[in-house]
């Protein structure tokens, strides 16, 4: 009897704790619902309408999606976005990794150099984009002035359909690399030194230690960096808006630029919401499997312990 009442008291306590937890989480959940869930549901509904923000929305069914999926300009913007996101991540991870490897050694002035590399992250995208627009300016910019001084032909960084996106990728790498380099550096510092020493004693050279010890130990960190950087890349807008306005010939027009253009140039918020929903689904396609993998890994670790 006493045992049963003891269990009941314990259950009551647990229920009370759960209730308290829910109540404590409620304000945060309410804010999340107000700022994320409700706008998302609102956007999904609006994506089935023609809506200019001023007059009442008109239901158009799947028209916005049909228009988008058959529009070659939107197709170009999807490819440009992938080009940017994949290009930035591939080059960025390699550059950030080897920079982090450099800073993982004892270097004179290493802390100062780390700060310098991280510093662009503190600047707003608009500022960085304006700065780099000046660097790339064919008439007044220093890069082409240097090329001309060397007797070379100036490069049309932002007006060539082939160079504009690489030029934006270079600028974005400059801005973002420091942040991801710091994360990779933290991962490198967590690699057990005895593992590397053991590999060294076994006769593994620098390359084999890197490929078979350091990189596998860093896989979670590198995976995290790749996914977050890629997802950030899918949402690229400011660079394109400030530096090229999506040109030349739509070569730097991204998905989010299309969204902005639909909303604020065409005043077609229904189509803009359809773009947003498609982008949300694309991000979900990348993020959900990653999340599931993380959960499975965590569960496996719990079982192993």
């Amino acid at each position: 009897m006493r045992k049963a009442s003891g269990r009941s008291a314990s259950l009551d306590l647990e229920a009370g704790q759960r209730r308290a937890a829910r109540l404590l989480a409620a304000p945060a959940l309410a804010v999340l619902a107000l700022t994320v869930v409700i706008p998302l549901l609102f956007a999904i509904v609006l994506s089935f309408t023609r809506y200019d923000m001023i007059t009442r929305p008109r239901w158009v069914g799947l028209d916005n999606y049909r228009t988008l999926l058959t529009d070659p300009v939107f197709g170009t913007s999807v490819l440009s976005t992938l080009y940017f996101a994949v290009g930035q991540v591939l080059i960025g991870i390699v550059a950030a990794f080897f920079t982090a490897m450099l800073f993982n050694r004892r270097l004179a002035g290493g802390a100062a150099m780390r700060t310098v590399i991280y510093l662009p992250q503190a600047m707003s995208y608009v500022t960085v984009a304006l700065l780099w627009s000046f660097l790339y300016d064919p008439a007044n910019g220093p890069l082409d002035a240097i090329l001309r001084a060397l007797g070379l032909s100036p490069l049309n960084f932002l007006t060539s359909t082939h160079l504009a996106m690489p030029a934006i990728i270079a600028m974005s790498l400059w801005r973002n690399m420091g942040y991801f380099m710091i994360i990779i550096l933290a991962g490198l510092k967590a690699v057990p030194g005895d593992l590397i020493e053991a590999a060294q004693l076994d006769g593994a050279g620098w390359w084999r230690r890197l490929a078979h010890v350091i990189v596998p130990q860093m896989s979670s960190t590198l995976f995290f960096v790749a996914v977050t950087w890629f997802l950030g890349g899918l949402q690229m807008f400011t660079q394109s808006y400030v530096m090229t306005q999506g040109g030349p010939v739509n070569s730097t027009r991204t998905i989010v630029y299309s969204l902005y253009d639909a909303a604020f140039t065409s005043l077609d918020f229904g189509r803009a919401c359809a773009v947003a929903v498609l982008l949300f689904l694309a991000v979900a396609v990348v993020a959900v499997p990653v999340r599931i993998k993380q959960q499975l890994n965590a569960r496996r670790l719990r079982h192993a312990h």
Partner: peptide, 15 residues
């Protein structure tokens, strides 16, 4: 096509 005025500084006629 590469002569693009960015809105700042001297325009091509000025320069």
């Amino acid at each position: 096509v590469n002569q693009v005025y960015t809105g700042n500084g001297p325009a091509p006629l000025t320069s």
